[in-house]
Amino acid sequence: MANSTPITVIDRETGKAFHEKILGEKWIRWAYQDGNATTLESLLFRSSLISTLMGWWYDSPFSKGKIDSAIHELEINEWEFASPKESYGSFNEFFARHLKDGTRPFDPAPENIVSPADGRVLVFPKLDEDTFAPVKGHPFNIRKMLPVASEHFINGSLAIIRLCPADYHRYHFPCAGKIVQSRDFAGALHSVNPIALGSGPDVFGENKRSYTMIQTPNIGTYCYVEVGAFGVGSIINTKTDGSVQKMEEKGYFKFGGSTVVLVFEQNKIRFSEDLIANSAAGHETLIKVGQPLASAIEKTDKK
């Protein structure tokens, strides 16, 4: 029988825990927890066909009717929208919406690293060489996630920001720097929901993903990874080369749950204390673009 334990997230602004509303929760639990994953894996998760068809439909004008129900069901704040909901020509236009100026304030100090996305964050202050384990008993490793770049990040630090359908789906640069390398990997489209992560698929090593290496003045070179998931029509990177500024847009996801992963070199950053404490207790923290994520470690502080 499926484990129906709710997903508990800490609201950073209030400090209170809440149970996450999961779009299609019954379906996800059925697919991953009722012994059906093997049967469905090839059809749904290792083939892009279903997600491609979903992407086509969400790009079409026929999908506009889903906008009102999504806003209501997911309790999305319309006040933040840069354009009124009636102006969107498709659900994907709504999903990849811009926000009003000033909606996501941030600290411009160069030594402070900010969240690149709205979502639910887990942080790992130090990798076990190349390994991190968001779910007990199911470790993942950066060698598989970054097969040609992992050696830079052995014993480093890592943050996972998981986006849900309710979230703002544009992602940004957490600090200033210069893009020095990028690469795309084809792959499966497993769900990034913790229900799926706790059931065994190697989401970070098998899913479709893109990564960008960014050289910075304060924290060395870090890796910015976008992970695709079931239902994601596309990962769209709008900034792909040259110098980047803190909070400049990097790209956006089309419909579906998605994830951004930041991987840092050893002894370069220190995550915010509340994120460390919540993650150590096994809880994601609800975070927004521009909120504090980490700070650069001064050279004199490094051990």
Rank of each mutant, 00 (worst) to 15 (best):
K303I: 11
K239R: 15
H190W: 15
L189G: 05
F91V: 06
F230I: 12
K208M: 05
Y252L: 13
F106R: 05
F271P: 04
C164H: 10
P6G: 13
P174N: 07
C164N: 13
P61W: 12
Y58G: 09
S234D: 13
Y171S: 03
D101K: 15
L293Y: 00
L146R: 05
I50A: 13
S115H: 14
T8G: 06
K26H: 15
I22Y: 01
P61V: 14
S199E: 14
A2F: 08
V263E: 06
Y58E: 02
S63T: 13
R120T: 04
D107H: 06
I269R: 11
R120E: 03
T39W: 08
S258R: 07
R29H: 08
T8P: 05
S150L: 00
K21I: 15
G256L: 05
I287H: 00
P201F: 06
T259A: 09
F204W: 01
R183Q: 14
D107P: 02
G231E: 12
L262Q: 14
A188P: 00
Q291N: 02
F255Y: 15
D184A: 07
A166I: 11
F253K: 07
D202I: 08
K299S: 12
L49H: 07
G220I: 14
N218V: 14
I287G: 02
T103L: 03
T216A: 10
A280R: 14
C175K: 10
F140E: 05
H172W: 04
K178L: 04
V260D: 06
W27R: 14
N77I: 03
V232H: 08
V123C: 07
K178D: 04
Y32F: 10
D107R: 06
I179V: 08
I10A: 00
V135P: 00
E80K: 11
N193E: 09
W27E: 15
K26G: 14
D101V: 06
G198D: 02
D128Q: 01
A149Q: 13
G257C: 08
G242M: 12
I179K: 11
A2L: 09
F253G: 06
V289G: 00
S182M: 11
S42L: 09
N141L: 00
D274E: 06
G35Y: 07
V263K: 09
S234R: 15
K239L: 10
I161E: 02
F255Q: 11
F91Y: 14
E93Y: 07
N3P: 03
A176E: 11
